[in-house]
């Protein structure tokens, strides 16, 4: 029995419980006025439980999910105040969940963590954590518009720094191998970027390209992305930061 059919059955049972509960409430309207406060509370609990169980189950029955593991090579480079450029490179691992509730929409959540080692002198190694939430709407079969939010943390011996950003962009997909794979081209602007304990960048963009492939239930991707953050110049000089990521994803799609 497939996951979809079992989810549908659970959703039906839950919905039936809701209907029964509502029916009881309506049929006993007169009695309700006479009932004790305790009984009323009990019915409300039943109704609430039914809704809590039924709505996500009904929604989940229609959704196609993809769960992937992610391995990323991250290169973070900083130009600051006329000092020599600082670069850290490391590997992060994480997971990604993609939900497709409707044919033309897609929601994505990704979490990753790792450690970046210093490649240049006088640079501290940093811990890396990143959480992304995003959604896509497909205008055509090959073009999607995306909105996403990103929370990133860098941890060093002297303290932590949090980056929060919102991005808006577009993604184009070109089929390869009779649609068994797709070439990905993506570009975004990051109009809102907040850096803790630091001036916010006045210009931020990102671009990515890569390859996504599917074979039966397996789905994978190899993506290269680059984020550029330009900060307002200070008396010390220009400040810019780039994060380049080469990620490898491999996951399973379900229920089909």
């Amino acid at each position: 029995m497939s996951v979809r059919s079992s989810s549908s059955r659970f959703a039906l049972v839950a919905l039936r419980a809701v209907v029964i509960a509502v029916g009881v409430i309506v049929a006993n309207r007169e009695f309700r006025y006479r009932a004790s406060r305790r009984a009323r509370s009990a019915r409300r609990v039943v109704l609430a439980l039914g809704l809590v169980c039924a709505l996500p189950a009904a929604a989940a029955a229609q959704v196609q999910w993809t769960a992937s593991g992610v391995v990323m090579v991250v290169s973070d480079e900083v130009e600051f105040g006329g000092l020599p450029n600082q670069r850290e490179t490391g590997v992060a691992v994480g997971a990604e969940i993609v939900a497709v509730p409707l044919r033309m929409t897609e929601f994505r959540a990704q979490i990753s963590a790792g450690h970046l080692n210093n490649d240049t002198p006088a640079t501290d190694s940093r811990g890396w954590t990143d959480v992304q939430l995003g959604g896509s709407v497909f205008a055509t079969s090959w073009l999607a518009f995306q909105l996403s939010a990103d929370a990133r943390g860098y941890s060093t011996t002297i303290g932590d720094q949090r980056w929060l950003s919102l991005s808006a962009g577009a993604e184009a997909r070109a089929p390869l191998f009779d649609n068994a794979a797709q070439a990905i081209f993506k570009a975004s602007v990051l109009p809102l970027v907040s850096v803790s304990n630091h001036t916010n960048p006045d210009f931020a963009v990102s671009a990515a390209t890569g390859l996504r492939f599917e074979r039966k239930k397996l789905q994978g991707a190899v993506l290269f992305s680059l984020e550029r953050y330009s900060f307002p110049s200070t008396s010390l000089g220009a400040h810019a930061e780039e994060v380049a990521i080469l990620s490898l994803q491999l996951g399973v799609r379900f229920p089909r």
Partner: peptide
């Protein structure tokens, strides 16, 4: 890296871009 990246940065990005 050339079009989006900063002129003074991109050493690491170019390496990853080369792999891609």
């Amino acid at each position: 890296p050339l079009a989006v990246g900063d002129n003074h940065l991109g050493t690491g990005a170019r390496g990853l871009a080369g792999v891609m």
